[in-house]
Simulated scan of single mutants.
Amino acid sequence: MASLRDIKTRITSTKKTKQITKAMEMVSAAKLNRAEQNAKTFTVYMDKIQEVVASVALGSKDATHPMLESRPVKKTGYLVITSDRGLAGAYNSNVLRNVYNTINERHKSKDEYTIIVFGKVGLKFFEKRGMPVVDSITGVSDQPEFADIKEIAAKAVGMFSDGTFDELYMYYNHYVSAIQQTLTEKKVLPLTDLAANQSSLSSYEYEPSEEAILEVLLPQYAESLIYGALLDGKASEHGARMSAMKSATDNADELIRSLTLSYNRARQAAITQEITEIVGGAAALE
């Protein structure tokens, strides 16, 4: 049985750990509020730009663009959004496990796919397994701006345009609530499902032409899809970390209660033993 000193040391250590996890929970809660607002605000923009792109692309039979057309798939690109830090529950492991299993099921050779990674956790995961990472970005802020990821987003879109890969899938955690995040797989390129969520198309007048507008608008739209997923992922990350730290704090409370009970029992046993020895010694002197 542990000594009173050992139990007291564990209680003190657990209380300090609880203070840390409680502070991290509060920090994540504060970050979550802003990240959630950013994601919801950007959704309004994405709905409108999707409606405009769909109207331009589908409203005219003469308008064509390579990003709208499927082609034989020789190589697949995977864009994976993870975090730079851990302590976020299953936030990273769910995405990475799903991507890893998907790649192993779909491809027999490393020449058939390439990976673009957001976050240190994902980068280390793929590098450790010797998987081909063509580009990565780390150190993205908790409240990212589009300028922070414009270069890598434009590069991903450009790699599709120049034929480096023939389709691009994106994996991230979609934010549902502070306690629920849904693993999401989205096909970014080619843009073959523009009409999926459009009940009706608006009519626009184009200047100079549909092709010229699509040449500028489609890359921007694809880059916006990536940025929107990052905002969604950041909200999910803060929610997952807040939930994980809350669970850790609750577990610390339970452990402190258990250790305090053990400490009191051990102290009571020690006192009882001392009283017994005193009574026994007094009886021996009579």
Rank of each mutant, 00 (worst) to 15 (best):
I103Y: 09
G163P: 03
K124A: 13
A147P: 07
G119Y: 03
H174V: 09
L194Q: 02
A153K: 02
K108H: 10
K110V: 09
F160P: 08
E167H: 04
F126S: 00
F125H: 10
Y169W: 14
K128T: 12
K110W: 01
L201H: 04
M159V: 00
I103V: 15
A153Y: 03
S209R: 08
N104G: 15
M170H: 03
G139K: 00
Q181A: 11
F146E: 15
S161F: 09
Y175P: 12
N104I: 01
D232L: 00
V117T: 11
D142E: 14
S203N: 09
G119F: 03
L201S: 11
P190R: 00
V121D: 01
I152F: 02
V133N: 02
Q180K: 07
T192L: 14
S224M: 07
Y169C: 06
P208K: 05
V117Q: 08
S203R: 06
D135G: 00
L168W: 07
G158Y: 01
M131T: 00
G228Y: 10
L225G: 01
T114C: 14
V134M: 13
D162K: 12
S141V: 09
E151N: 04
L217E: 03
S203Q: 12
L189V: 06
E223N: 07
F146W: 09
Q220H: 14
V133G: 06
F160H: 13
L189N: 02
L218D: 06
L225C: 14
L231H: 09
S209W: 10
V134F: 06
T138G: 04
S200G: 14
S209G: 12
A147Y: 03
P219I: 02
G119P: 11
V133L: 01
Y221C: 05
S136C: 08
V176R: 01
T184N: 10
K108A: 10
L230C: 05
D193H: 12
D193I: 06
K120R: 13
G158L: 03
I152E: 10
E112P: 05
Y221G: 02
V140S: 07
K128G: 10
K120E: 15
S199L: 05
